[in-house]
Amino acid sequence: MSSGSVKVRLVSGRTLSQGRAMEKGKITQEYEDAVAICELGSKTMEALGIENGDIIVVKAALGKINVKAKLDKNLQEGMAFIPCGPYFNYLLDAYTQLTGMPGFKSLEATINAAPGAKIPTVKEITQMMKEGVK
């Protein structure tokens, strides 16, 4: 078991299950399951000493969020992927470079294993964003 932290470039984007869950409805378990995850490569998971489905904490300049680790064996080292949604946006700053578009595709972040930590529900994360919890 390693408990090191890993620095990653965090990217967000669409996934099929995120799309399906979104169509079903955002206030559903399916949506939460689809977007409260972070895809990692196998080497990154090894370095963190975690397995598919373990809870991790993702830290960026703006704050940190607990999500579930998901293995994507094709993902290269140094990269992590969180589907577009509130869990990624929680870490995202609002600077758009005067284009209207925030930087969804490149966020510097560090990841640590967080065994036993709780993943906030969609309702809870709305509240967290509202209150500006760090």
Binding site: K26, G63, Y90, D93, M129
Partner: peptide
């Protein structure tokens, strides 16, 4: 939307028109 935008949105009156419950 990024967090800061959501945090401000929570402070003002919002009228939401959507078929489903959303965030």
């Amino acid at each position: 939307f990024p967090r800061a935008a959501v945090a401000y949105l929570a402070k003002i009156p919002v009228i939401n028109i959507d078929p489903k419950f959303n965030m």
